[in-house]
Write a protein that binds this DNA or RNA. Structure first.
Lengths: 117, 117
DNA sequence: AAAGTTGGTTTCTTCAGGGAAACTAGTTTC
DNA sequence: GAAACTAGTTTCCCTGAAGAAACCAACTTT
């Protein structure tokens, strides 16, 4: 009984810690939405700004920097006529897709439920 | 090509909207962690407070009220000697488990990665 | 040379999310 | 009667997340 409790407790502690870790990386109002946008493919700064409705340039810039630091996003400067910058998910960034996808499908479920309440 | 683009765009829009909807329900620093704790089974107020490390009683109380309003959590008052209150996930609340689980397992992955970097 | 494009940075400000601690209230035990 | 346990509520405060708008700098087009 006691051993079982200890196992439960340590599994539970690790679970909580893991959730906190994830939330730290995805902290703030915008990161998940930016990643959700990039999950559809690489995008330029202004494309992202149009895609992530409501975000200000300052926020987008800041969040992209954090995502890059965490190794989730790659930033590539292209030597085009007016300089363009491309952002794309790294392989590691793509590993967040299951979370994003679950959130997206739950959101659709929820919208149906609220509609038919 | 144009039709394809329109399909892409509307699928993409719905995706973004769904993510926003989910984030609205799970807004704030604590809801996911509370749900993550309740996913292990029903808990009393003080149990939750001990379980969700760092949360203040005010926050816990406020967040639980919101979760109850959204139909994710059930609150039951028990007529015990000193009154006790039990919180548990509703069936609908359990539908969030895939999200929580994905976050937990990504968090563990991330911790491994950071450790071995 | 003025205006528009790109991708930002800087500054200034506001507001709400959240923290600490005290307080309530019913019951029970010391 | 004081202290302790239950589950909160209330108040007061403060920081940091975020918004708005202006500004910057290289290059192109008109």
């Amino acid at each position: 009984m006691e051993e079982e409790e200890n196992l439960d407790q340590s599994a539970c502690t690790a679970h909580h810690r893991a959730i906190r870790d994830t939330m730290d990386v995805l902290s703030g109002k915008w990161k998940i939405r930016i990643i959700g946008s990039l999950a559809f493919g690489k995008k330029r700064f202004m494309e992202l700004k149009g895609n992530v409705e409501g975000i200000a340039a300052k926020m987008l810039s800041k969040e992209l920097q954090e995502l890059e630091l965490h190794g989730l996003v790659n930033r590539t400067v292209l030597a085009t006529k007016p300089i363009t910058v491309e952002y794309e998910l790294t392989e590691y960034g793509h590993s967040l897709k299951p979370i994003i996808d679950e959130m997206a499908s739950w959101g659709m479920l929820h919208r149906e439920r609220v509609k038919n309440q």
